[in-house]
């Protein structure tokens, strides 16, 4: 699915990736997809928990050379 917005949170430490994600999701419509890039090792656990609590869906995530990519669909 084509992401509506892409956020680059590479190099940023906790809690910045989640704050950026939250801000971006807020601007989006239900069903739209956000792509997030991060290097924070806690990001995966954080985003899994956050998307679940917020009613969003973590469609997919990958890790390549220390860069984590996430695709989140707004609920």
């Amino acid at each position: 699915m084509e992401p509506k917005t892409t956020i680059d949170a590479k190099g940023l430490a906790c809690p910045q990736p989640i704050l950026k994600t939250k801000k971006a999701i807020k601007e989006m419509d239900s069903g739209e997809v956000l792509e997030l890039h991060a290097t924070d090792k806690g990001a995966q656990s954080d985003l899994t928990a956050w998307t679940k609590a917020g009613g969003h869906e973590l469609l997919d995530h990958t890790e390549d050379n220390g860069v984590y990519k996430f695709w989140i669909q707004k609920g």
């Binding site: 809690p15 989640i18 704050l19 994600t21 939250k22 956050w50 917020g54």
Partner: peptide, 11 residues
């Protein structure tokens, strides 16, 4: 303050 910001991100 990190927890506070995180909680705010949790609405």
């Amino acid at each position: 303050y990190i927890i506070a910001n995180g909680a705010a991100a949790y609405d």
